[in-house]
Amino acid sequence: MRSTFSSLALVLLTLVAAAQAQFGFFEQMFSGGGGQQEQQRQQNVPSDAAGYRRQYDGSHCDKYLCPDTLACVHFPHHCPCAWSNHEEKFELAEGHRICVSRGGFAEGEAARKVQLARQGKL
Score class of each variant (00 low, 15 high):
residue 77 H to M: 13
residue 56 Y to S: 00
residue 57 D to Y: 03
residue 5 F to D: 11
residue 39 Q to T: 00
residue 101 S to E: 14
residue 84 S to W: 03
residue 90 F to M: 06
residue 67 P to M: 13
residue 121 K to A: 06
residue 85 N to H: 07
residue 114 V to I: 07
residue 86 H to Y: 12
residue 31 S to F: 03
residue 54 R to E: 14
residue 11 V to K: 13
residue 35 G to H: 06
residue 40 Q to N: 11
residue 34 G to I: 05
residue 14 T to V: 14
residue 83 W to Y: 14
residue 105 F to G: 02
residue 88 E to S: 03
residue 114 V to P: 04
residue 51 G to C: 05
residue 36 Q to M: 15
residue 35 G to S: 07
residue 79 C to V: 04
residue 106 A to R: 11
residue 15 L to S: 06
residue 17 A to N: 07
residue 118 R to C: 02
residue 90 F to R: 04
residue 36 Q to K: 11
residue 80 P to L: 04
residue 115 Q to G: 00
residue 106 A to I: 12
residue 43 Q to M: 12
residue 72 C to L: 11
residue 4 T to W: 13
residue 58 G to T: 06
residue 28 Q to I: 01
residue 60 H to W: 07
residue 69 T to Y: 01
residue 113 K to I: 07
residue 105 F to V: 12
residue 51 G to V: 14
residue 17 A to I: 14
residue 36 Q to A: 10
residue 103 G to F: 13
residue 116 L to V: 01
residue 65 L to F: 04
residue 80 P to R: 03
residue 49 A to M: 08
residue 40 Q to W: 13
residue 2 R to S: 09
residue 22 Q to I: 08
residue 37 Q to Y: 09
residue 57 D to A: 05
residue 92 L to V: 02
residue 7 S to H: 03
residue 24 G to T: 02
residue 9 A to K: 06
residue 72 C to G: 00
residue 74 H to K: 14
residue 87 E to S: 00
residue 31 S to C: 07
residue 17 A to C: 08
residue 52 Y to A: 03
residue 79 C to K: 01
residue 59 S to I: 06
residue 43 Q to T: 03
residue 70 L to C: 03
residue 10 L to Y: 02
residue 113 K to P: 00
residue 107 E to V: 00
residue 91 E to I: 12
residue 79 C to A: 04
residue 97 R to D: 06
residue 11 V to P: 01
residue 1 M to W: 03
residue 34 G to T: 11
residue 18 A to W: 12
residue 118 R to A: 06
residue 122 L to H: 08
residue 122 L to G: 02
residue 54 R to G: 02
residue 40 Q to P: 00
residue 54 R to F: 04
residue 16 V to E: 10
residue 42 Q to K: 05
residue 81 C to Q: 05
residue 41 R to A: 12
residue 26 F to C: 09
residue 66 C to W: 12
residue 56 Y to V: 13
residue 98 I to W: 09
residue 22 Q to Y: 13
residue 107 E to P: 03
residue 63 K to W: 14
residue 110 A to D: 10
residue 28 Q to R: 15
residue 22 Q to A: 10
residue 37 Q to V: 15
residue 8 L to G: 09
residue 71 A to V: 02
residue 83 W to G: 03
residue 66 C to N: 12
residue 18 A to V: 15
residue 78 H to E: 15
residue 36 Q to C: 01
residue 39 Q to K: 11
residue 80 P to F: 08
residue 41 R to N: 12
residue 41 R to W: 11
residue 117 A to P: 00
residue 119 Q to S: 05
residue 51 G to A: 13
residue 18 A to T: 11
residue 95 G to I: 10
residue 14 T to W: 10
residue 56 Y to R: 08
residue 53 R to G: 00
residue 28 Q to Y: 14
residue 65 L to M: 08
residue 93 A to Y: 09
residue 20 Q to S: 13
residue 43 Q to K: 14
residue 43 Q to I: 01
residue 68 D to I: 00
